[in-house]
Design a binder for these strands. Structure first.
Length: 311
DNA sequence: CGATTTTGACCAGCGC
DNA sequence: GCGCTGGTCAAAATCG
């Protein structure tokens, strides 16, 4: 896995083997799409256009300008943990009653994500629900957490954004609780793990800073929110809600309506608002996208290509 | 006081 | 089978 980069001579999107990212769970392929691919994004709920400038609904707000040419797709091949992108379908994670999942305090929360998404997995593994997180070694007290050994961890679709920002945790309209932090191989910067504070929401997000370009923050969302955002400073309260749930829309599809806001907690430190959405899709969905050369830096390496970093 | 963050440990998955 | 790494848990600490 460390060899990571492998340009894709073929001119097609890289394959798992080409882009091994380093982590079992993150074997994701990233592609750069041209404006032509924007349509694909739209299918996933992304209303993007080349050179799009924000401010319109469905856009990323003034925070960023999306340049379709630099758009990066991150089809989650799931080599490992999950069969394939799951549509996240119906309600992704929020299906069940609040009680279940993570409880706030320390909650054994584990149950999250994976567990709740039976419908989703359409693909490969019909796997039985559950298998929740691999949660650590905690007592198998909670049934929902019970993970059968043979079952693989199922993850919801993931969408990553690269943002030039000095702050790690960008405000996106939702409230998150940090539940872990890990040092990342090949990167001096640790990766932080956040979980939506909404009791019913199982959306998670990982935040990592580029080791090559510290100004770039890679934020990866996993799952879909099934609730409203907490509200935006800009008065933009998202009206949408779980209505999107049935589509394979990226979790961000909700908060990006109001536009990804500048961190509330942190002032407008975002220097260059450049955010590149990385969407995970089924490997087969995308084709023939401009090949990109990933760099081996963990998450970042998967998402950011050298050229971009140097920009 | 409640919520969030920090931090060390544990477990699962994968490659060798 | 072993080791490595990512991901998650949960107790303790910190913050508002």
């Amino acid at each position: 896995m460390d060899d990571a980069h492998n340009p894709d001579p073929g001119g097609h999107f890289a394959t798992d083997s080409n882009w091994n990212l380093g982590s079992d769970s993150d074997n994701v392929n990233y592609f750069f799409a041209s404006d032509r691919e924007s349509s694909i994004l739209r299918e996933f709920g992304w209303n993007l256009h080349p050179g799009h400038t924000s401010s319109e609904p469905g856009s990323f707000g003034d925070l960023d300008r999306i340049d379709a040419e630099n758009l990066v797709f991150a089809p989650e091949s799931s080599s490992g943990l999950q069969g394939s992108v799951s549509g996240g379908g119906g309600g992704g994670g929020c299906d069940d009653q609040a009680g279940m999942g993570r409880s706030e305090s320390g909650g054994a929360g584990g149950a999250d994500v994976s567990t709740s998404n039976p419908s989703v997995s359409s693909s490969s593994s019909e796997d039985p629900p559950d298998k929740s997180t691999g949660s650590g070694g905690k007592p198998p007290e909670i049934p929902s957490k019970v993970r059968k050994k043979g079952q693989k961890r199922i993850r919801q679709p993931r969408f990553a954004f690269m943002t030039k920002s000095e702050v790690d945790h960008l405000e996106d309209g939702y409230r998150w609780r940090k539940y872990g932090q890990k040092a990342v191989k090949n990167s001096p910067f640790p990766r932080s793990y956040y979980r939506c504070t909404n009791g019913k929401c199982t959306v998670k997000k990982r935040v990592e800073r580029s080791s090559e370009d510290p100004t770039i923050v890679i934020t990866t969302y996993e799952g879909q929110h099934c609730h409203h955002t907490v509200g935006f400073p800009r008065g933009g309260i998202i009206s949408h809600e779980a209505t999107l749930v049935n589509h394979l829309t990226p979790p961000v599809s909700q908060f990006y309506y109001p536009g990804i806001q500048l961190p509330r907690e942190s002032p407008p430190t975002i220097t260059r608002s450049q955010q590149i959405p990385v969407q995970t899709v089924e490997s087969g969905t995308l084709r023939e996208l401009t090949p990109q050369i990933p760099i081996d830096e963990g998450l970042l390496g998967d998402i950011v290509r050298p050229g971009m970093l140097n920009r």
